[in-house]
Design a protein around this nucleic acid. Structure first.
Lengths: 350, 350
DNA sequence: ATTTTTTTTGCATGCGCATGCAAAAACATT
DNA sequence: AATGTTTTTGCATGCGCATGCAAAAAAAAT
């Protein structure tokens, strides 16, 4: 009776290193060593242990291991809105990369409303080895607190004032300049920019570059409209722009989703032809940019390279906690498609 | 000298419950109790401890806690291709929901190539409390192994033979029937279906429903083409379909991305008009389906409800490991837009 | 065959915390 | 004031594993 009960409990219990040791007739530490790469074990012992381990279906408990090694093997990734823009691709790439590196991803999403730091407590309490902040509009407080707690932080696609964390971004400023040059080359006269959250460094840098580029190429200062909070905001902004008495003939949208909305509004609400009546340029080179219905000219973010840099920064900081913080900028490139008028001489590449 | 070194080490070390106890002049267990909801602590002690904890910036180490409670508070989520289709939205919703429930998400992505089970070892070793499998084309072996290891598994948007796990899907079969009915009502004559991975239950169920519906409504058996492996496969499949001598006049694509590709090919490669020359219906109601350029008629998957059901199943199984496995089917609904011809009498709703 | 060197193994300990148990303290009852 | 009752607290222990240290075994050198 009670024996049966005990056996049931036993069968529920996960098999531990001690169980394996017992069955193999060796010590628990021997088992541990067999599962620790680079430990000193004889071939015979290893075979013996492995056989017992297989028979019992043993897997080392990584939680227990973390407790000792002080490495959880988990990287926290905080994403604002997973569903938008380039984050799905980034997440995929990041996950693949970090998994290859032997890390697991602990995913946190920021609540859609308000910049409230998400389960901040959780993040620190969970002993993540490092943190990737991939939310353009997330409070920078989180980064600081983690840093104070000794957790390396890498900002993805954003920067923060005061060098409290490493960051990886695209060459946002240069991109803005380049796009202004493109507009100038296509003989546009009235540039415009739809700003995202003004607190987001990414949007700010692109805007600043764009302004500088306009000035440098003899264009007037761009008309700026704010198009925050998703498609609705973008719709409002582009509508406002196109309703102006002398409407812009070249609109730079700081990410593709916004540009897509802009194209749809221009075409279907205003009956405009792109790029004849108005040119629209996006940012990111998200998948829909290449769809035949849009053929969006856009500035491609080098996601693979950015993810790579992110992983590298993490590994670097983990290896040496004293490592200097770095702001990595990865160059992107313009992808010419059909949504922006070009100088006569130039054919769209690709 | 060595004192300084020692202090540095100390300052690196995270503060533990024992540190707090020392400072507050109480026992470590008292500290533990203060951070354990529902434990017996006097108000005075709590205040005393909390003050010390604040001063030291103490946070309980969840890893250590897990070791004792045998609950990691983590839910493993395995996703095939994060970047595609409805997964971003799902992931967002799931993360939000599970976070609200007090769980963290440990994210695993299946390698894009081959059905190789990803870091399976990792998943079990990491003591996740439960596992959500949201990869339509992932081997079902993983589910079985986890179940054997005593980890509750919930299949999201797919099922598996032999009741080895709970699952949450949309009413795929009924949806197939409904779409056949829609085609019949619109006086289509030559239905077609583009199959996804034939191993994926989701694609199979939709196809079976569609076939049944065609039969029931006096339509011929659908022409079936396989369009696996992403956009390229879809492109090949739809091209093949539209190249046929008597090409189909109604194509059902088992998810929106495929339908989008189909629309683009039909329009731009074949110069066809949608829905006059050919009707196209998708599945999921992903964001692009609503974009003006597509106006895709599609069967909406009730993501919120499905995520809800998933969370509920998990909570249920965690509360009672003996709980019966359940196959939950959440009803979706047809969203009529412009990509499918309707009977004269009917105007597109919405 | 003996000593020295190297490798392999077991023992003991502790990571940070939760929890059963018994002692102590606070409170309620007669 | 003394007893019984409830609450609060500390002590001790262990979760599953890695790791320093010393004993044991194997290999190399004399």
């Amino acid at each position: 009776m009670s024996e049966t009960a005990a056996m049931q409990i036993d069968s529920k219990r996960a098999t531990t290193a001690t169980d394996v040791a017992e069955r193999a007739g060796v010590s628990q530490s021997a088992v541990s060593r067999c599962f620790t790469p680079g430990a000193s074990v004889s071939a015979r012992m290893r075979a013996q242990v492995m056989q017992a381990a297989d028979a019992l279906g043993y897997r080392p408990n990584l939680i227990a291991r973390s407790l000792i090694t002080k490495r959880s093997g988990m990287i926290g990734v905080v994403v604002g809105n997973v569903a938008q823009q380039l984050y799905p691709g980034t997440l995929q790439a990041l996950a693949t990369r970090l998994q290859a590196e032997g890390y697991r991803i602990l995913l946190f999403t920021a609540p859609p409303d308000g910049p409230a730091d998400p389960a901040l407590e959780q993040i620190i309490a969970y002993q993540v080895d490092a943190l990737v902040l991939a939310a353009a509009d997330l409070s920078s407080k989180l980064a600081e607190q983690c840093r104070a707690a000794g957790i390396p932080v890498v900002l993805y696609n954003r920067t923060v004032r005061g060098q409290t964390a490493s960051s990886v971004t695209c060459t946002n400023h240069a991109a803005g300049i380049e796009i202004a040059a493109l507009f100038a080359a296509g003989r546009h006269r009235r540039p415009a920019f739809i700003a995202f959250d003004p607190a987001a460094s990414t949007s700010r840098d692109r805007e600043r570059g764009f302004r500088a580029g306009c000035r440098a190429h003899g264009l007037p200062d761009p008309i700026v409209e704010v198009g925050a909070s998703g498609d609705a905001g973008a719709r409002r902004a582009i509508t406002s722009l196109l309703s102006r008495p002398n409407r812009p003939d070249a609109v730079f949208c700081p990410f593709d989703q916004m540009a897509i909305v802009a194209m749809d509004v221009a075409r279907y609400d205003f009956g405009l032809s792109i790029p004849n009546d108005v040119s629209i340029v996006g940012f990111d080179d998200a998948p829909p940019a290449a769809w035949p219905s849009y053929q969006l000219t856009t500035y491609a973010q080098p996601v693979a390279a950015m993810v790579d840099a992110t992983a590298q920064l993490i590994v670097e900081q983990l290896a040496d906690p004293q490592a200097r913080l770095r702001q990595v900028q990865v160059p992107g490139h313009l992808v010419l498609r059909q949504s922006c008028r070009l100088p006569r001489s130039q054919e769209p590449t690709r």
